[in-house]
């Protein structure tokens, strides 16, 4: 812990917390595991009138300029987190240094969850079946959020067709804006356009729904890293989870896909024509574009000399892995054929 870092955090917490006599930062340590934001864990001692308590907080801040693997909007993330506090299973969002003047960068302060990530938890060999059902329940809770509670800054697509048109168009648009050609993207975009699934209600979408972003709490799975949250098709989250699980197995959703779909449909009321193994396979591919577009944008920035993180050339492997996933998924979907409406 640097003295400056602890002093800055103490001063910030004193400025934002109500009814506090003293605040002391007992320890600070970096948290590994994320590729895009700087994460720190801080143990803090609060003294209120007649009370003293110690708690752990998590600081989630922007990296220094030119060192971000992904560029996302911290103001929008904070406004979404603030709206979601208490409505979805996630650690509470507590404070925000919006200007970055107190903590050195725009930084969100969250409650700490002591449990492991679901990814680490799964490595201990737990039964995947019940976990798949738990994931269906978390996903359904996110996708049930009333869109009216979301901040005005969250873009609202006019309807599903317009939304899907734009999402499919991103495959070609992102490719044409890139520093080199990626024929996989254009091939996949053309395939997705020719094989559209039935429409779904538009919902809140987490945007990076994967086992590394689910924390195992005392009695629930809690979702973190909301920087890609948006209003969209809920199947994006389900497909993305399955896509990432191919690189970071196991996949509790695919373990019993029919049971997962049935539980998710039961909780959301979405029909079998909309959520089924074929449509989730479609979104394994389609849902990848948001993060893939960020990934190749970071790659382009690296090529131009605008960023300098080792994460960027390392993530070229993730791009190659994604190409492989898309081609395999499309081959599988063509083999089974789309379900009849």
């Amino acid at each position: 812990m640097t003295t400056e870092g602890a002093a800055a955090l103490e001063a910030f917490l004193r400025s934002v917390a109500d009814d506090v006599d003293t605040v002391k930062v007992l320890s600070m340590a970096p948290i590994g595991g994320g590729y895009s934001r700087v994460m720190m864990r801080a143990e803090v001692e609060w003294s209120h009138p007649g009370e003293r308590r110690v708690e752990t907080l998590v600081l989630r801040g922007d990296p220094p300029p030119g060192q971000a693997a992904f560029e996302t909007d911290r103001d929008l993330e904070w406004s979404i987190l603030s709206a979601l506090n208490g409505r979805v299973p996630m650690p509470a969002a507590r404070y925000y240094d919006a200007a970055g003047s107190a903590l050195g960068a725009k930084t969100i302060v969250l409650d700490h969850v002591p449990g492991p990530s679901l990814l680490a938890h799964l490595a201990s060999g737990v039964d995947l079946g019940p976990v798949g059902i738990q994931i269906a329940e978390v996903a359904a809770a996110i996708h049930a959020v009333d869109l009216d509670v979301l901040p005005p800054g969250a873009p609202r697509p006019p309807d599903w067709s317009t939304y899907l048109d734009a999402l499919i168009a991103q495959w070609g648009d992102a490719e044409r804006a890139h520093v080199e050609r990626d024929p996989f993207m254009r091939h996949v975009g053309a395939w997705l356009d020719a094989h559209r699934p039935p429409p779904s209600p538009l919902t809140l979408v987490h945007g990076d729904f994967q086992s590394a972003n689910l924390l195992v709490g005392d009695d629930a799975l809690l979702l973190v890293d909301w920087e890609f949250a948006h209003i969209g098709d809920p199947r994006e989250d389900l497909g993305w989870f399955m896509a990432v699980a191919m690189a970071a197995p196991p996949d509790p959703i695919s373990y019993d896909l029919d049971a997962f779909c049935a539980r998710y449909r039961e909780l959301t009321g979405i029909s079998e024509g909309v959520v089924n193994p074929w449509s989730l396979g479609y979104f394994v591919v389609l849902g990848a574009i948001r993060i893939f577009a960020n990934l190749i944008a970071a790659n382009a920035a690296f090529v131009r000399g605008d960023t300098a993180s080792i994460t960027v050339p390392y993530n070229v492997n993730a791009a190659a892995f994604a190409h492989n996933v898309w081609i395999a998924a499309i081959g599988g979907l063509e083999a089974i054929g789309a379900p009849r409406p």
Partner: peptide, 22 residues
């Protein structure tokens, strides 16, 4: 043609897992 391109990318990638996640 895509299979050939994919094979080259996979040979360059080699063994790959997301490091530091979890």
């Amino acid at each position: 043609v895509f299979a050939t391109r994919q094979a080259h990318e996979l040979e360059i990638m080699g063994e790959f897992a997301f490091v530091g996640r979890g």
